[in-house]
Nucleic acid binder design. Structure first.
Length: 460
DNA sequence: AAAAAAT
C-alpha cells in the first residue's frame, strides 16, 4: 500500500513525499481512513509507530480542504509538544498550515495573540492550556478535532483532572481521538466520557520494544561506586548517543559536571532549567553535538531522538512504569539498543519488582575491566546462589572459596548459573564441574590483582 | 519521597 492511495489534498501529499514517507505504518493504515470518515478513535500504540502522522495527516488534510478550521493536540510534556508540533509543521508546510505550541514557562502574550490571529493547530500541554481556557483568553479557539496523545502518561503524571476541565471548554460537536500505549481503567473511563461511539485499533505487539530489540543488563555495585561504574561503562561500551537517567535534579547537575570534568561530551537536562535552555540542549543532542545526556525523568517519556545506543539507569526509577519509558529511548526505528541499570544489593528487591511488574527481561552482567566494581557484596551473591535449585552444590563452592576476595569468582558463577537456569526450563540444574574448574583456575590469576586493589581502597 | 506540569 502507498500513501497516494489515501488521496490527500495535493499540498499534504507533497509534504508526505518530501518527508520521504513511502509505505504507511500499520497504525497509519488503520487510523487514517477512520479519521477521514470523521469517526472518534481510540488507538493503542507506542511512540515510534508513526502515530503523529497517523492523526496529523488526515487532520491536516481536512484543514487543507477547508472541512474544518481548527484542531487541538494535547501531549503530556513540553518536549513532546515541541516534537509533535515540528513534525506537523514539516508535513503540512506546503498547505500553509499554521501551527502553534502552547505550554508553560514562556510568556502568555504571544500564544494568546497567535490564537486570536487564527492558528489552525494548537499543540499544547495540559497546564497552560487549562489556564488559558479558564482565564477566558482563548474562547475563540473551538477545535473540531481534538487529539489526546499518550493519555496513559497524562494519567501517570496526574493530569486527568486538567484534561477533564479542558474538555468542558471545548464544544461537544467535535471529533475526538485518544492515543495510549496502555489502557488502564481510568483511561477507559475517560474515553467513555469524552468520546462518542469510537472505533478501536491496536498495534501493540507488532513493535514490542520492551523485550525484543533492547538488550537489558544490570550491574550490582556498591552505593559509592556509581560514578566509577558509569565512567567505566562509558569507556568500554560502544556508544554513540546515550542517556543517563538519575532520580534527582541535583544528581543530574553533579554527575554532568563530573563527566564534563573528565572530558565527556555531556549535557544535563531537568525540569528546573529554563524552557529555552531545555530546547537548546535537546536540539544539540538531537544533532549529535552532545553525546551523553544526563537527565531526570523529564526525558523518560516520548522524546524521540535518533541513534541513542545506550540508556543507563544511574539509579533505578521510583516508578516501574518509568523503567519502560526510559529504556524506550533506545532501540528505536528497528535499531537495537542497550539498557544498563546500576543497582545496589539494597535495591535488588525493587529491581525484581520492576522485572515482574513490567515483564522486563534483564540479565546480570559484569563490567569489563571493572574488578572490584561488580558484585561487590558477597552476601548478595551467596543469596543468589542459595536461591537457585543447585543450592547444595553451590554451598560447597561458597565454602570452598571462603573469603571476600573471591567475590568476582562468585559473580561469574552466578552469571553462568542464571544463564543455565534460563536455558534448562523446569529441570534441575547441576554444576558443570569442568566449567567450575576452569573458572577457579582463571580466578587464581585474577585474585592477586583484586586483592591488591581492595587493600588500596581500604587504606584510603 | 521524585519529577512532571500553571504561577
Amino acid at each position: 500500500m502507498k500513501f497516494s492511495e489515501f488521496n490527500f489534498h495535493r499540498d499534504i501529499a507533497k509534504g508526505v513525499k518530501i518527508a520521504g514517507f513511502k509505505e504507511p505504518s500499520p497504525i497509519q493504515k488503520m487510523a487514517i481512513p477512520i479519521i477521514e470518515e470523521g469517526k472518534d478513535l481510540v488507538g493503542q500504540a507506542h511512540t515510534g509507530t508513526g502515530k503523529t502522522a497517523a492523526f496529523g495527516l488526515p487532520m491536516m488534510d481536512k484543514l487543507a480542504r477547508g472541512e474544518i478550521e481548527r484542531a487541538l493536540v494535547i501531549t503530556p510534556t513540553r518536549e513532546l509538544a515541541t516534537q509533535v508540533s515540528d513534525e506537523l509543521y514539516h508535513l503540512g508546510r506546503f498547505a500553509g498550515i499554521r501551527t502553534l505550541t502552547v505550554y508553560g514557562g514562556v510568556g502568555y502574550g504571544r500564544q494568546i495573540a497567535l490564537i486570536h490571529k487564527g492558528v489552525q493547530i494548537v499543540v499544547a500541554t495540559p497546564g497552560r492550556l487549562k489556564d488559558l481556557y479558564r482565564k477566558g483568553k482563548i474562547d475563540v479557539f473551538n477545535p473540531e478535532i481534538v487529539v489526546l496523545d499518550e493519555a496513559d502518561e497524562m494519567l501517570d503524571m496526574g493530569f486527568l483532572e486538567e484534561i477533564k476541565e479542558i474538555f468542558e471548554y471545548i464544544p461537544q460537536n467535535r471529533q475526538t481521538l485518544l492515543f495510549s500505549a496502555t489502557m488502564p481503567e481510568p483511561i477507559k473511563e475517560l474515553a467513555n466520557h469524552i468520546l462518542y461511539n469510537p472505533e478501536f485499533i491496536s498495534v501493540i505487539g507488532e513493535e514490542d520494544t520492551t523485550n525484543n530489540v533492547i538488550d537489558q543488563r544490570y550491574y550490582v555495585i556498591n552505593e559509592n561506586q556509581r560514578d566509577e561504574a558509569i565512567v567505566k561503562l562509558l569507556e568500554t561500551e560502544d556508544t554513540n548517543k546515550c542517556i543517563i537517567f538519575c532520580r534527582m535534579k541535583r544528581e543530574v547537575d553533579r554527575l554532568t559536571e563530573h563527566l564534563q570534568a573528565l572530558g565527556f561530551n555531556t549535557a544535563g537536562l531537568h525540569g528546573d532549567l529554563e524552557q529555552q535552555d531545555r530546547e537548546v540542549i535537546i536540539k544539540a543532542y538531537r544533532r549529535g553535538e552532545t553525546k551523553v545526556m544526563v537527565a531526570t525523568d523529564v526525558a523518560a517519556r516520548g522524546i524521540d531522538v535518533k541513534d541513542v545506543t545506550h540508556v543507563f539507569n544511574y539509579h533505578i526509577p521510583f516508578d516501574p512504569q518509568s523503567y519502560v519509558h526510559r529504556i524506550g529511548r533506545t532501540g528505536r526505528a528497528g535499531k537495537s539498543g542497550q539498557a544498563i541499570t546500576l543497582v545496589t544489593t539494597e535495591e535488588f528487591r525493587e529491581l525484581q519488582r520492576i522485572q515482574k511488574e513490567v515483564g522486563a527481561q534483564m540479565r546480570l552482567a559484569t563490567i569489563r575491566g571493572g574488578e572490584g566494581l561488580d558484585a561487590a557484596n558477597l552476601e548478595y551473591l551467596a543469596d543468589q546462589i542459595r536461591a537457585l535449585p543447585v543450592h547444595k552444590d553451590a554451598q560447597k563452592v561458597i565454602d570452598y572459596m571462603g573469603d571476600m576476595d573471591k567475590m568476582l569468582m562468585l559473580e561469574k558463577l552466578v552469571s553462568v548459573l542464571l544463564d543455565q537456569e534460563e536455558q534448562t526450563t523446569g529441570s534441575q540444574i547441576g554444576f558443570d564441574q569442568k566449567r567450575v574448574d576452569e573458572m577457579l583456575e582463571s580466578f587464581e590469576s585474577e585474585q592477586k590483582v583484586t586483592r591488591n586493589n581492595n587493600r588500596r581502597k581500604k587504606r584510603r
